Amino acid sequence: MSIIVKKSTKYLQKNSQVLVQSFLGFTTSPGDTRDIDNYWKLIGKKGLVLMNEKEGGMSRHVRGERVLVKFSDDVKAMGLNFHNDVENSLWMFVVDLMPCEDQI
Protein backbone atom coordinates (compact mmCIF):
# COMPACT_ATOMS: atom_id res chain seq x y z
CA MET A 1 0.00 0.00 0.00
CA SER A 2 1.37 3.41 -0.97
CA ILE A 3 0.70 6.56 1.00
CA ILE A 4 0.80 10.15 -0.14
CA VAL A 5 2.37 12.43 2.43
CA LYS A 6 1.76 16.10 1.82
CA LYS A 7 1.02 19.33 3.54
CA SER A 8 -2.55 20.39 4.16
CA THR A 9 -4.35 21.32 0.98
CA LYS A 10 -5.92 24.74 0.80
CA TYR A 11 -9.69 24.69 1.13
CA LEU A 12 -11.51 23.82 -2.09
CA GLN A 13 -14.39 26.16 -2.82
CA LYS A 14 -17.84 25.24 -4.10
CA ASN A 15 -17.83 24.55 -7.87
CA SER A 16 -14.08 23.84 -7.86
CA GLN A 17 -13.05 21.12 -10.28
CA VAL A 18 -10.97 18.45 -8.57
CA LEU A 19 -8.99 15.32 -9.34
CA VAL A 20 -8.81 12.43 -6.87
CA GLN A 21 -5.17 11.64 -6.09
CA SER A 22 -5.65 9.28 -3.11
CA PHE A 23 -8.28 7.85 -0.80
CA LEU A 24 -7.81 8.12 2.96
CA GLY A 25 -4.27 9.23 2.15
CA PHE A 26 -3.35 6.05 0.29
CA THR A 27 -2.92 5.42 -3.44
CA THR A 28 -3.73 1.69 -3.27
CA SER A 29 -6.41 -0.22 -1.42
CA PRO A 30 -5.77 -2.79 1.30
CA GLY A 31 -5.84 -6.34 -0.04
CA ASP A 32 -9.01 -7.27 1.84
CA THR A 33 -11.10 -4.36 0.49
CA ARG A 34 -14.52 -5.39 -0.81
CA ASP A 35 -15.21 -4.25 -4.37
CA ILE A 36 -18.15 -2.04 -3.31
CA ASP A 37 -15.86 -0.29 -0.80
CA ASN A 38 -12.87 0.10 -3.12
CA TYR A 39 -13.03 3.87 -3.43
CA TRP A 40 -9.43 3.80 -4.65
CA LYS A 41 -11.05 3.17 -8.06
CA LEU A 42 -11.78 6.91 -8.02
CA ILE A 43 -8.09 7.85 -8.19
CA GLY A 44 -7.57 9.81 -11.39
CA LYS A 45 -11.29 10.63 -11.70
CA LYS A 46 -12.56 14.20 -11.93
CA GLY A 47 -15.41 15.81 -10.09
CA LEU A 48 -17.01 19.05 -8.99
CA VAL A 49 -17.17 20.25 -5.36
CA LEU A 50 -20.83 20.78 -4.44
CA MET A 51 -20.50 21.80 -0.78
CA ASN A 52 -18.33 21.53 2.30
CA GLU A 53 -19.22 19.49 5.37
CA LYS A 54 -20.52 22.52 7.26
CA GLU A 55 -22.94 23.33 4.42
CA GLY A 56 -23.98 19.68 4.49
CA GLY A 57 -24.78 19.85 8.21
CA MET A 58 -21.90 17.57 9.17
CA SER A 59 -19.37 18.09 11.92
CA ARG A 60 -15.69 18.04 11.10
CA HIS A 61 -14.24 14.56 10.86
CA VAL A 62 -11.22 13.62 12.96
CA ARG A 63 -9.28 12.86 9.72
CA GLY A 64 -9.87 16.36 8.35
CA GLU A 65 -12.17 18.45 6.25
CA ARG A 66 -14.51 16.87 3.71
CA VAL A 67 -16.33 18.14 0.66
CA LEU A 68 -19.14 16.57 -1.37
CA VAL A 69 -17.81 15.78 -4.84
CA LYS A 70 -20.06 14.97 -7.80
CA PHE A 71 -18.13 12.79 -10.21
CA SER A 72 -18.41 12.92 -13.97
CA ASP A 73 -18.15 9.11 -13.99
CA ASP A 74 -21.03 6.85 -12.96
CA VAL A 75 -20.09 5.78 -9.41
CA LYS A 76 -22.75 3.06 -9.33
CA ALA A 77 -21.52 1.58 -12.64
CA MET A 78 -18.04 1.39 -11.07
CA GLY A 79 -19.59 -0.95 -8.49
CA LEU A 80 -19.09 1.47 -5.60
CA ASN A 81 -21.44 1.93 -2.68
CA PHE A 82 -22.75 5.46 -2.09
CA HIS A 83 -25.41 6.88 0.25
CA ASN A 84 -25.89 10.46 -0.88
CA ASP A 85 -29.02 12.06 -2.30
CA VAL A 86 -27.02 13.55 -5.17
CA GLU A 87 -26.27 10.82 -7.70
CA ASN A 88 -22.57 10.08 -8.38
CA SER A 89 -21.47 12.09 -5.35
CA LEU A 90 -19.28 11.11 -2.40
CA TRP A 91 -17.91 12.90 0.65
CA MET A 92 -14.15 13.12 0.11
CA PHE A 93 -11.36 14.38 2.34
CA VAL A 94 -9.85 17.57 0.96
CA VAL A 95 -6.32 16.17 1.33
CA ASP A 96 -7.20 13.41 -1.16
CA LEU A 97 -8.09 15.95 -3.83
CA MET A 98 -6.17 18.35 -5.99
CA PRO A 99 -7.44 21.26 -8.07
CA CYS A 100 -8.08 20.37 -11.68
CA GLU A 101 -7.95 23.00 -14.40
CA ASP A 102 -9.37 20.72 -17.13
CA GLN A 103 -13.07 20.92 -17.87
CA ILE A 104 -15.12 17.97 -16.68
Rank of each mutant, 00 (worst) to 15 (best):
S2E: 09
I3R: 15
I3G: 09
I3L: 10
I4A: 12
T9R: 00
K10F: 13
Y11M: 04
L12E: 05
L12A: 09
L12T: 05
L12F: 13
L12Y: 07
Q13F: 10
K14H: 14
K14G: 07
S16L: 10
Q17V: 14
V18D: 11
V20R: 00
V20K: 01
V20F: 10
V20S: 04
S22T: 11
F23I: 10
L24H: 04
G25P: 00
F26P: 00
T28N: 12
T28A: 13
T28E: 15
S29Y: 03
S29G: 05
P30N: 10
G31A: 13
G31P: 02
D32E: 13
T33L: 09
D35G: 04
D35S: 11
D37Y: 13
D37A: 11
N38Q: 04
N38E: 03
Y39L: 08
W40H: 14
W40N: 05
W40I: 11
W40L: 10
K41V: 13
K41P: 13
L42A: 03
L42K: 03
I43A: 06
I43L: 12
G44P: 05
K45P: 06
K45S: 12
K46V: 08
K46W: 05
G47P: 11
L48F: 09
L48K: 15
L48T: 15
L48S: 12
L50R: 14
M51K: 15
M51S: 09
N52R: 05
K54T: 06
E55C: 04
E55G: 08
G56T: 03
G57C: 07
G57V: 08
M58L: 12
S59F: 08
R60P: 14
V62A: 11
V62N: 14
V62L: 06
R63I: 06
R63S: 09
G64I: 00
G64H: 01
E65K: 03
E65W: 02
R66V: 00
R66S: 00
V67Y: 02
V67S: 01
V67G: 01
L68W: 02
L68S: 03
V69C: 05
K70R: 15
K70H: 14
F71K: 01
F71E: 04
S72K: 15
S72D: 03
S72W: 07
D73E: 10
D73S: 13
V75T: 09
A77H: 03
A77Y: 06
M78G: 08
M78E: 04
M78F: 09
G79T: 04
G79L: 02
G79P: 08
N81D: 15
F82D: 13
F82N: 12
F82A: 07
H83K: 12
D85Q: 12
D85W: 12
V86T: 13
N88Q: 09
N88V: 04
S89H: 06
L90Q: 03
M92F: 07
F93M: 09
V94E: 01
V94C: 00
D96K: 00
D96R: 01
L97E: 09
L97Q: 02
P99D: 15
P99T: 13
P99Q: 14
C100Y: 03
E101L: 07
E101A: 08
D102H: 00
D102V: 02
Q103K: 01
Q103H: 03
I104E: 01
